[in-house]
Design a protein around this nucleic acid. Sequence first.
DNA 1: ACATGTTCCCTTTTT
DNA 2: GGGAACATGT
Length: 762
Amino acid sequence: MQDRRRVMRGLDLSMSLNVAQQAAVRHRNGPLLVLAGAGTGKTRVITHRVAALLGEGVPAWRILAVTFTNKAAAEMRHRIEHLCSGEHDVSQLWVGTFHSICARILRRHGSVLGLSSRFTIYDPGDQSSVMGRILKELNVSDKMFTPRGVLGHIDRAKNRGLGPQDLDALSLVEPVRSVVRKAYERYQERLRAADAVDFGDLLMRTVELLRVAEQPKEGQDTELDPVRGFARRFLQVVVDEFQDTNPIQAELVDRLAGRADLCVVGDDDQSIYGWRGADVDHFLSFADRHRGAEIIRLEQNYRSTMNILRSADAVIRKNHRRLGKTLWSEAGDGERVRVLMLGTERDEARFIAREIRDAIDEGANGDEIAVFYRAHAQSRVLEDEIRRVGLACKIVGGIAFYERLEIKDILSYLAVLLNPHSDAHLLRILNRPTRGIGSSSQTKLVELAASRGVSLWTVLCDPSETGLSKAAARKISAFVAMIEELRERSSVLRADQIVLQVIQATGYREMLAADDSDEAADRLENLQELLGNVAEFIQEAPSGTLEEYLEVVSLTGGERTDGLVTASVSLMTVHSAKGLEFERVYLTGMEERVFPHARVLDSAVELEEERRLAYVALTRAKRDLTLTMAAKRRIYGQVQVGQPSRFLLDLPKDAIQTIARSIAAPPPASIPAPKAAPAREAWRDDIVYEPHEARTAPEDDASPDAIASEGVHPYVGMMVRHPTLGPAEVLGWSGEGTKVKLQLRFSTREVRTILARFVAPL
DNA sequence: ACATGTTCCCTTTTT
DNA sequence: GGGAACATGT
């Protein structure tokens, strides 16, 4: 029998949710897959479902909700709280990303695996520094094996739950396979000695922990009891963005869910993390792996106008590997989707900046406007131009604040205070500011630690055993004493006070103050900002510890929400746009080789992912969607002449408004470069467009004189012959006079840059 | 040790 | 065009 409150809540739900959504919210006692198209109220379903569970008396601490980003987690918790209106203790819910949840579990139970509760999380930079040293030790060609490359293999392995012994599954060729295996082994040894884990380990070691807990109980191993208890903890598990789950995450879900009710939500059309090991097949085969699973489809879109949905559908429809669904909306056709071609990436940025400026002047809210791009490298011009028209903008992701040298240094000090065995961090600060422990001493110390299988800190604590000179040993002792002193003090101080102490006591501030360059002043300012940041963190969570601060930084890469700027325009990659929505969206760089990216053009599978990426981008917009391309764009400093993205050509004619004739042309496989930017008549009068040098003097900067003087104009798609390398296709060019360089793609598909005078037209 | 210089490769996309 | 790792000179 249902109690009164449940009936009430049921009524409540039916008023605000559609039939399919209600079904998803109410489904119990069995696995559930919600196939939720873009904008169909996926988050609503999850939050209502969790709220309903709480209403039914499921204890908050027995509910787990996994989200894709930390931001989404915060948002979800907030919305659930709102729905419950204070009736339940939402803070007890387990809501977070896979990584943050795993970190939490490992901090609590990791001792079983030899991890302390204060283990350090290594970011890609830390990983590289460890791997760099290992590769040097292994004495392998640094051309063939870069830290990044080897870590890439290890990461792929970890995404599938493979340890060093299981690398065969990666089908690497020799000698890569054996080097990676060796490096992987050593890498794990180093992390163990450092009491550290990387992102992949957070997942893998948690799975390991849960596996261990499942082993039959023998004798007195009560040590595992808490873990066993934890493994049975959750009664209800919800996973958002399930289409982006990789194998290790999928296993994690199964283990955490145990016999709990499992509800996964996702959209196969929005699977955009294949490169990170995510496999849509987990999603598609969910019903096969979970007996009796029900599938609920959400197809009514509450976000966008039909013109936007039709455009998105036209793009995604071309994919083969999909379940297939059609979104519909009651929002009406709305404005047509605009497609514009501009002269250069600068024109593109200027145009967008000006339009946003106008919109905001007419009352639009900057928060509701976003500019998307395929890769971070495209963000700079956009940022420039948007700032130039006097608007604030926030760049989501990208080269973050926390990547800066001085910030990383101070954060390294903090990491060392919590865990001095963290070699990657210790090494970073050992001689910064300079304290006479130079590179040769460092090398010796590192080698010694490696040969003994202990952390660097262990070696430093006993400097007389290092074989270094008395003077060097004394300096090391002084350093150790300083760190110990700081650790002592930090145990009684607030996080922000500790940071201040570190900046001062280590001599870091002094070092910067003594330097009168502008750069040093900038750095000091950044440290000030860091202090402000920590203070802000403390303000939000008054009992927040240094550990927690560092955890937030390492897991979010420092998603900074600049509190001051409220109504700022968002700039981000399409990947980071997933899950978000905006009234007005600009999707930039809609050119072949930019979006879709050049790197995926010869992989059908990756092209499908690229198409899904485009689909994600288009479906973020509520009302206004503008797609832009540049006729010419600098890439790696080279002017490239762009062809319209294939995605532009897929858009339905009746849903879009094309504002440059050339885009309407069919996709030529190889065409001469446009002779000039689009003629003025092609532009609508009601579009504000700034004339630009690229249009007044269109060809000057792009016409290679050397070839021109022979009466030959290179163009994109032109075939030329190199005396030794053979025939090639021209992809772009740069430079002037005799130094014109062509970017050429040879029949081997290899792309090279070669001086124009070395080739002849074919 | 530091400052400037030089070369390289680079860019997908993120927790 | 640009950052970062190396290199060379003071």
